[in-house]
Design a protein around this nucleic acid. Sequence first.
DNA 1: ATATATTTTTAGCTTTGTCTAAAAATTAAA
DNA 2: TTTAATTTTTAGACAAAGCTAAAAATATAT
Lengths: 217, 217
Amino acid sequence: MTHSEEDYLKAIYHLGGTENETVSTNAIAEQMDTKPSSVTDMIRKLSEKEYVSYKKYQGVSLTDDGKEKALSIVRKHRLWEVFLVDKLDFSWDEVHEIAEQLEHIKSEKLIDSLDKHLNYPKFDPHGDPIPSKNGELMKTTKRLLNEVELKQTGICVGVKDSSAPFLKFLDKHGIALGDKITVLDKEDFDGSLQININDRSILISHLIASNLYVKCD
Amino acid sequence: MTHSEEDYLKAIYHLGGTENETVSTNAIAEQMDTKPSSVTDMIRKLSEKEYVSYKKYQGVSLTDDGKEKALSIVRKHRLWEVFLVDKLDFSWDEVHEIAEQLEHIKSEKLIDSLDKHLNYPKFDPHGDPIPSKNGELMKTTKRLLNEVELKQTGICVGVKDSSAPFLKFLDKHGIALGDKITVLDKEDFDGSLQININDRSILISHLIASNLYVKCD
DNA sequence: ATATATTTTTAGCTTTGTCTAAAAATTAAA
DNA sequence: TTTAATTTTTAGACAAAGCTAAAAATATAT
Ligand SMILES: [Mn+2]
Ligand SMILES: [Mn+2]
Ligand SMILES: [Mn+2]
Ligand SMILES: [Mn+2]
């Protein structure tokens, strides 16, 4: 498995190319910032190795083997992110790029030891679940904040967009994972939300709300 | 800088291709486990990028730029080795291969943070000095054990051969960095040494003695 | 000094992963 | 149901890093 093959499998996984779902060549190209023709080439190779199933023009999906590989990369990526934040004091908007490299380091023992060193974390710094060694994903019942009913309260448990600009925005406005959020009001005009967070009341745009996951009970 | 270019610079550095010394194509090929023709190709590329100075058939040596790069890789390699041993409980014979991968991760901040996290170590698990951020190497006055005079005492500070088999041998026979060693006797017949270590007296072969560094004061 | 051996380089080929431009298939619109 | 637009694949090229086999340069022996 090359570095590049691993990145493709991960991309297909993130685009939902698992459980009978199919992913388009163009979608992969966009996600990976490459050209569709390059994607086609790689898809054919992964198909020969039986990591994906693929019929020309019909899109691609992960085989069980491919899904296993993808989950193992995701596991490594997220464990390294936890390491960077918990042990090396990185902030959550700085870790993705580096984890993108670290996820390709090959050593089963390294990852097991890292997992132990971090005390077997269940979620990464962005609230995404860390697959177990045998590829099981903890599934949580989170909802996007913009879909939460008026007056309801939830705990902020994740972000949909984990790009640095969005994460920095959240830092700047004092919004962090674990915070308790109550929806006070919704503006019909533009969909912005008045919310209560940490005993402050602030107004956030629809775009912000639609990228924040909360868990209501 | 590609992964491979970095490995070549490091190999040249380790073979002594610095301070006016010149390194042969064959030596590099052997060190890197590649063919001489591949080395020639890479040398030409590194020469174009001015990391090495090179005249056909005359061997190769690092430029200041190349030496700086090489030392930065060595620094990363050794810091990661310390991390694996100190934080993840690896033994010293397991870390080289993994550090060989980790040394190529690109992030200045990552290495600075790691250095801090490890409390600015000066030596790696094999007793080799860790270059400072600006490429300075602590030079120590160590000697090979087989060159030490009778009755003299020294502290074991490093290994010349840091291959897993040798390191495992040392573990098995209770020889570790920091141990106090006294040369009790030398056998003319085969050069083996009777030594005192940790209040035990043991006999070691010339080959073992010639791969152990000690510091006598 | 000449012949032999060794080292180093060149020439040509392969694999991996990428690209552009053009062709083919599929999907959407008229 | 044709036509137009979009998506996907193919064809052909390229750079990186490696290889083998042969040629050239250098070093060693006789
Ligand atoms: Mn990656
Ligand atoms: Mn993450
Ligand atoms: Mn390496
Ligand atoms: Mn070492």
